[in-house]
Design a protein around this nucleic acid. Structure first.
Lengths: 211, 211
DNA sequence: GTACTATGTAGACACTGTCAACAATGATGA
DNA sequence: TCATCATTGTTGACAGTGTCTACATAGTAC
C-alpha cells in the first residue's frame, strides 16, 4: 500500500521512482491509460508536480519503464509456467495460459507493453529493419525464444518455419488477452481466474485441433 | 444538401462532422492516438476550437463515432470476404485474412475499436451483464454471429460450444492484427499486403496442416 | 419580413506536460 | 569540522488541451 506516514517530513523521498511507477499503475487502473497524468502520480506520491522529472525524462519514459517492468514479469511468468514440462505441446499451452493470466492480472502493464506509439508513428512504416533484429534486451525476447523453441519442437520444424510457428503460438494467447482486456468476453465466462485459465486452455486446444 | 464546395468563405461548414472524423484519423495516424486533440482536428477542418462540440458531446464521443464507423466497415469486409464460400473452414480463414487486412489498412479505426476505456474503467469489473448481451447495433455483432455460425458449422458444434469456437476463431486474427499494428512482426515479413495475407493464412492454418 | 433552430465563434477556466531557476539534502574530501 | 558539489525536490511559468458559457450568424418555416 501507499504508506507515507514517515517520509512526509523529509525533503528527500527515498524511493520516489518506484512509488511513481506504482502510482501510475493505480491511476491508469482507475481512469484508464489516457487518463493518466504525471501530476496526479506526483500528487499521490506526495511530491511536487515537477519532481517526476528527476526520475523520468518525460511521460513516455515513465510508461516505457512500466513496459519494461511488464516485459520482465511476463518473461519470468512464461519461464516459470514452462519450467519442468517435457512435452512441447503442453509447454506451449502452459505458456499461453500464463500469458493470458498475466494480461488479466496486470492489465495496465500489458496494455502499455503493446501500445507502441512510444517509439514511432502508428503505422510502423519506419524502416526499423536492422536495429530491431539484433541482440535484444533479454526480457520478452528471452521468453519469445523459448516459445519459438517449443513451437519448433512441437511442429517438428526449424529455422524460418519454426519462427513462424512460434509467432503463431503467440497470436492466440495475445488475441485472447486483448479481447479479455477489452471486455469482449461475456463476464459470466471470465469472472474468476479459474474460468479464465479454462477458457485459455479451451481456445488454445480448439485452435490446434481445430476441426 | 452538401453544396459547400467553397467552404472557406461561408460561415457554415456544411459537412463538418465527417471532416472532423477524417481529420481525427489523419492526426492519429501522424501523432498516435494519445497525440490526437480536438483542437487540432478543428484547426485542420478550418473551424474554431469549440466547433466540434456542435457535433460531438466530447472527445470520447468522436472516438466512439470512429469506432462505430470501423465496426461497420469491418463487418462489411468480413461479410464480403465470406460471401460465396461454401466450405465453413475456408470461410473462417477468409474472415481471418480479411480481419487482419482491415486492421492493417485502418490501424487508427482498429485501435480505437479495441481500446475500451470509452465505456468504463480498464478492468471491466463493472456489472454490465444485462445491457450488453441483448439486441445489439448490428455492426460487429453481425459479423461475430456470422463467425460463430461458421465456426459451429466447421466444428460441428452448437450452442455453448459453438460460441466458444467462434470466439476462438476470433482470437487468432485479432492477436495477429494487434501484433502487426504494434510492430512485433519483422518488417521484411509484413511489408506488402500480399505478405500480410500470406502470413495470416499461414498462422490460421498452421496447426491444421501441421499435424 | 420575423421567429426559431442549427451551427459557428470568442473567451474563459482548470488541468496538463515541460522547462528554468532556486533550495534542501547527503556525500566527499581538505 | 567544514566547504564543495551532485542529487533530488520545489516554485513559478508557459503553451496546449478539454470543455463550458455567452454570443453571432446562417438557413428555414411561418
Amino acid at each position: 500500500m501507499t504508506q507515507r506516514n514517515e517520509k512526509s517530513g523529509s525533503y528527500h523521498h527515498g524511493d520516489l521512482r518506484d512509488e511513481l511507477l506504482q502510482a501510475a499503475v493505480e491511476v491508469a487502473a482507475e481512469r484508464g491509460l489516457h487518463g493518466l497524468s504525471l501530476r496526479e502520480c506526483a500528487r499521490r506520491a506526495g511530491v511536487s508536480h515537477a519532481a517526476p522529472y528527476r526520475h523520468f525524462a518525460d511521460k513516455d519514459a515513465l510508461l516505457l519503464a512500466l513496459g519494461e517492468q511488464g516485459d520482465a514479469w511476463l518473461a519470468e511468468a512464461g519461464r516459470a509456467a514452462m519450467a519442468g514440462i517435457d512435452d512441447a505441446q503442453e509447454r506451449l499451452d502452459a505458456y499461453g495460459v500464463a500469458y493470458v493470466r498475466f494480461a488479466v492480472e496486470h492489465p495496465v502493464h500489458f496494455r502499455i507493453m503493446f501500445t507502441s506509439e512510444l517509439n514511432g508513428p502508428t503505422d510502423g512504416e519506419t524502416d526499423d529493419g536492422e536495429t530491431d533484429d539484433g541482440e535484444t534486451d533479454d526480457g520478452k525476447e528471452g521468453a519469445f525464444d523459448l516459445l519459438v523453441r517449443s513451437a519448433a519442437e512441437a511442429t517438428g520444424t526449424t529455422g524460418e518455419q519454426a519462427l513462424v510457428a512460434g509467432f503463431a503460438s503467440w497470436c492466440v494467447p495475445h488475441g485472447l488477452a486483448m479481447l479479455l482486456l477489452d471486455g469482449r468476453v461475456p463476464s459470466e465466462r471470465a469472472a474468476t481466474p479459474e474460468q479464465i485459465d479454462e477458457l485459455s486452455r479451451t481456445v488454445l486446444t480448439l485452435w490446434r485441433r481445430g476441426t
